[in-house]
Computed example of a mutant assay.
Amino acid sequence: MTDNPDAPAHIVHVPLGERTYDIVIGPDAIGSAGTRLKKMFPGARFAIVTDTNVSESQLPRLEASLSAQGLAYHVIVVAAGEASKNWATLNTVVDGIIAARLERNDIVLALGGGVIGDLAGFAASITRRGMDFVQIPTSLLAQVDSSVGGKTGINSVHGKNLVGAFHQPRLVLADLSALDTLPARQFNAGYAELAKYGLIDDAELFFWLEANYRDIAAGGASRAQAIAKACAAKARVVAGDEKERGNRALLNLGHTFGHALEKATGYSERLLHGEGVSIGMVLAYKFSARIGICPSQEVGRVEAHLKNAGLPTTLADIPGDLAPTEALLDMIAQDKKVSRGKLTFILTRGIGQAFIENDVAPDAIRAFLEDMR
């Protein structure tokens, strides 16, 4: 393990005025964390929030890096999985930070995937009326999407991410080597969020991914480049619309369908978040084609690429029985993007041409879902 913050890295800048921060993408970002954190937060102590899986694979590296710099820390470990994004686990994290006597000027470190980033970030936003935190994402999904932009939160019994806050990290440390320990299914789920950026407004990025996704999956030189491209794309959107009052909603391509499918499968291993997004993006493209605004050949191209990347693309790909259409529609109606009772979807006119549609008729979605079943 090295502890060299000057090792080769991609750095993406997120310009948000006084909340500006950097995303450091490198081969040993966890190993160099101690040096970076000591310089950036002199005198601070740290609460490491992680899960039962990451505590085995990555926590020892982070602990060694902090200890080598003489930094004091306290570890809080929660159960792995989407089910931990709940009130009870949030309370465990908040109580753990307070019991360790960490103060407002101390730092919360979110070491893990998207669940840990959302959970630890939300805990930081409310503990002692707001503490700073650092994202150390260990999954591809977290590195290209959820660790960037300041969305934090937990799930409600009524739907996904309905309780939370915008709370920007002070720093994001994306360690490329952490991805080498991911199961293929987890890596593929993260790839869906990576492909999303090309499908929203960057057709050239999507075409580049078509040509390079095998090298990305194999850990070749394209992997770091792909993560940097995705982070830069998200940084650009977040800088223009930090709190999702406008175009930031485009980042939810596939998520309205996807979140409903996650809830319908009980936030379980039946359907990972990125898998739900993959199916949701294909559904968004197919619905757009159905209403005559997206060429059918582009729908086929998108679906083929996601299939080639090892992702599910249809409702039939979800194991087990799926909730009735009316129940799915009710779940969609609880989505955060619903406004004044009107259904909002991210639709598309083709690859790289997504747009926000604020008034989609529930009957049209009901009929579409029935046909897709």
Rank of each mutant, 00 (worst) to 15 (best):
I25F: 09
T50F: 07
T50E: 07
L16G: 02
A33V: 00
P15T: 04
H13L: 08
K38Y: 02
P15A: 15
Y21F: 14
R45P: 00
D22S: 13
Q58M: 10
G31T: 05
R61P: 00
E63R: 15
S55I: 01
H13C: 06
Q58Y: 08
P42H: 08
T52G: 08
P15K: 08
F41I: 09
S67L: 14
F46M: 04
L62K: 04
G34I: 09
I25A: 06
I25C: 08
V24D: 01
G34H: 09
I23C: 15
K38W: 03
L37T: 09
P60I: 02
A64I: 10
D28N: 15
A44C: 13
A33K: 00
V12H: 05
N53F: 13
S57W: 13
G17A: 07
I11G: 03
T50K: 04
G26W: 03
T35E: 13
T35Q: 13
R45S: 14
D51K: 10
A47L: 07
Y21Q: 06
I25V: 12
L16E: 02
D28W: 00
P42S: 09
I30V: 15
I25N: 05
F41R: 11
A47G: 11
K38A: 15
S67V: 10
S65M: 04
L66Y: 10
L37I: 11
R45F: 02
Q58D: 13
A64P: 03
A47C: 14
A33P: 03
V12R: 01
A64Q: 14
R36V: 15
S55P: 01
S57F: 14
S65E: 03
G26M: 08
L66D: 07
L59P: 01
G26P: 13
R45K: 15
P15V: 04
T35K: 14
V14K: 00
P15R: 09
I48G: 05
L16D: 01
L59Q: 05
H13V: 06
A29H: 03
G26C: 11
G26L: 07
I30D: 00
S65V: 02
I30K: 02
V12G: 04
G17R: 06
G43A: 10
I23L: 09
A64Y: 10
Y21M: 06
A47Q: 03
G34R: 08
D22F: 07
S55A: 15
L16W: 02
V12E: 10
I30S: 02
T35H: 10
S32G: 13
A64H: 12
R61G: 07
G31L: 03
R36A: 06
S32A: 15
S57Q: 11
S67T: 14
I30Q: 03
S57N: 11
R45M: 05
A64F: 10
D28V: 02
R36I: 15
R19K: 11
S57A: 12
V14T: 01
L59W: 05
I11Q: 12
V24P: 02
A44L: 09
L59Y: 06
T52Q: 12
T20S: 15
I23R: 00
E56Y: 07
V54H: 05
S55W: 00
P27Y: 03
I30P: 02
H13N: 12
I30R: 01
S32N: 10
S65C: 08
L66C: 10
P42T: 10
E63K: 15
